[in-house]
């Protein structure tokens, strides 16, 4: 299972204008893990993600995906292995129809068109968007766009899913729908998000990035329990762990008990 490991060693990235975005980042993510990378604006999250599928080249350090180091030769294979979902689905859905967009990756992999067709149908059904197949992306709602964007990546059957701010800009219902969907994936999942409640629900492990270094790395409940650490990194507890503004009672114990009890009590 070493195939799906993501290992980042001493990663440094300095932009052309001299800005140090990543100083020295180290972590290893194992097969099937669901990990959140959180941090304040400008902490280096997006820069880090762009290294994971080789869009940016490290100034120093190394990235290994599975058994391969990320190099020019391994790039095509790694881009198939690591499925990247961008924050703004409008950047990701650039083809004229949903079908064309989802088929874009498989066609680039050189699959025959029958198989492409079948894959497109499968992944669109998986994200609950099969009825949108022939629609142009600009006629979709925000939630639909997001799900189709995920389908465009799933159609390349990646082993690792990387998502930048998956829930941003979604209404509560669409957000809930998306969280339900992501929960059912068995890929290795890496998220960045400011939606800490989503993190609490989806990720057993959290990495805090602060000023270009890993400030903390551990089980999510533990990280969110450390208020001093959160404050230092310009973060705060997820709302669901804070006291109720109406009655003043904390809900944290209750929620934790629920999580242990059934493992998925709050599905959509």
């Amino acid at each position: 299972m070493s195939h799906h490991i993501v290992a980042v060693k001493h990663l440094q990235h300095v932009y052309a204008d001299g800005t140090v975005a990543l100083q020295d980042v180290n972590f290893t993510i194992h097969h099937g893990e669901s990990v959140a990378i959180i941090g304040a604006n400008g902490a280096g999250k997006s820069t880090l993600l762009l290294h994971l599928n080789g869009y940016l080249t490290p100034t120093a350090g190394e990235i290994r995906i599975g058994d391969f180091p990320l190099t020019k030769q391994t790039l095509p294979e790694i881009r198939r292995t690591v499925g990247m979902v961008f924050q703004d689905p409008d950047d990701q859905l650039f083809m004229p129809t949903v079908f064309d967009d989802v088929a874009f990756g498989p066609f680039n992999l050189g699959l025959p068109s029958d198989e492409v067709r079948q894959r497109v149908r499968e992944v669109l059904e998986q994200v609950g968007a099969a009825h949108l197949m022939e629609k142009p992306p600009y006629h979709l709602s925000g939630g639909e766009k997001k799900r189709v964007a995920i389908a465009t990546v799933l159609s390349m059957s990646p082993d690792i899913l990387v998502m930048d701010e998956p829930t941003s800009g979604l209404d509560p219902f669409a957000r809930r729908q998306l969280i339900g969907l992501l929960k059912n994936f068995r890929h290795t999942r890496i998220f960045t998000s400011h939606d800490l409640d989503m993190v609490l629900e989806l990720c057993e492990r959290t990495i805090i990035l602060h000023q270009g270094v890993v400030k903390a790395d551990g089980p999510t409940p533990e990280i969110f329990g450390d208020e001093a650490l959160l404050a230092q990194c310009r973060l705060e507890k997820p709302l669901s762990m804070q006291g109720c503004p109406m009655c003043g009672q904390g809900r944290r114990e209750q929620r934790n008990a629920g999580r242990k009890g059934s493992g998925g009590v709050n599905d959509s």
Partner: peptide, 15 residues
């Protein structure tokens, strides 16, 4: 970037 991430090699395929 999104195109590269999905294996774009300079050729567009259409059905």
């Amino acid at each position: 970037m999104a195109m590269l991430a999905r294996g774009f090699t300079g050729e567009f395929h259409s059905r």
